[in-house]
C-alpha cells in the first residue's frame, strides 16, 4: 500500500510539528507517527533539451541530475560519475557553451538549454583538437576522468586561461586525476592553446 500525500500536506504537518515543538516528548512521538506514513510520491517532469545538437523531449524524475539523465536514461555514458558531489570534475559538460558540473545540475534545470557532452565534441568525422592532443600527449591513464578533463580543457582554452603552466594547472584543478596524468593533461592544453 502506497501512501498518498502531497507536499502541501507535508508543509502543513511541519507547521503542526513546529507548534508541538514546545512540548518535546509529545512532539517527538507525534513526529515519529507522521514520519512513518509520510513517503512522498515520485514526480516526473516533461523536459525538452538539446544534447549534442539533438533535441530530446523526455520525462524526467524531478530528483534526477543531469549526470544521471545522461548516463542512466540516455545511455550517454561518456560523462562520468566520480563523486556525485561536485568535488572531482569527472562529470563536466558544457551547458550553453560553459563548463558545468552535471552532478550538481538537476535535469530540470537544463530545460531549453544546449548541452554538449564528450560524445558531441568531435565534429562528425574529425576529433576535436583537444581529443587529438590528449591521445598524442598521453593525457590520461585509466581514462575515467578524461572526458571531464577534455570538456574542462576546451573551456579552459575558451576562457583564455592558458598563459602559463601555472595558470593551466590552476584552472584545471577542479578536475581530479588519481592516476596523476597531469603532465600529459597540461601538455595537451599547451598544444591546443593559441
Amino acid at each position: 500500500m502506497k501512501q498518498e500525500h502531497s507536499r502541501r500536506f507535508f508543509l502543513k504537518t511541519s507547521s503542526v510539528l513546529a507548534a508541538f515543538a514546545m512540548i518535546p516528548r509529545t512532539a517527538k512521538a507525534f513526529y515519529e507517527e507522521v514520519k512513518n506514513f509520510f513517503v512522498p510520491n515520485k514526480e516526473v517532469l516533461p523536459l525538452t533539451v538539446s544534447i549534442n545538437k539533438k533535441k530530446y523531449s523526455i520525462k524526467a524524475d524531478t530528483r534526477t541530475t543531469l549526470l544521471d539523465l545522461l548516463r542512466e536514461d540516455l545511455h550517454l555514458t561518456g560523462t562520468k560519475k566520480g563523486c556525485d558531489h561536485g568535488q572531482c570534475g569527472a562529470c563536466t559538460v558544457h551547458v550553453n557553451g560553459e563548463r558545468v558540473l552535471s552532478c550538481l545540475t538537476l535535469a530540470a534545470m537544463v530545460s531549453g538549454k544546449e548541452v554538449t557532452t564528450i560524445e558531441g565534441l568531435a565534429n562528425e568525422d574529425k576529433l576535436h583538437p583537444m581529443q587529438q592532443a590528449f591521445i598524442e600527449c598521453d593525457g590520461f591513464q585509466c581514462g575515467y576522468c578524461t572526458p571531464g578533463q577534455i570538456m574542462s580543457a576546451v573551456a579552459c582554452v575558451n576562457e583564455g586561461h592558458t598563459g602559463s603552466v601555472a595558470e593551466i594547472k590552476e584552472f584545471m584543478s577542479g578536475n581530479l586525476c588519481r592516476c596523476g596524468a597531469y603532465n600529459g593533461i597540461v601538455q595537451s592544453i599547451q598544444k591546443v592553446a593559441p
Binding site: L76, T77, G78, E119, D125, L127, Q132, I135
Partner: peptide, 22 residues
Amino acid sequence: FVAPPDDGRVEGIYKVTGKGKY
C-alpha cells in the same frame, strides 16, 4: 576515419571520445 599516432595508446580514441565502456 582517424589514424591514431604511432605511439598513442591502442584504446586512446575510445577514452577521449567517451566510447569506452566502464
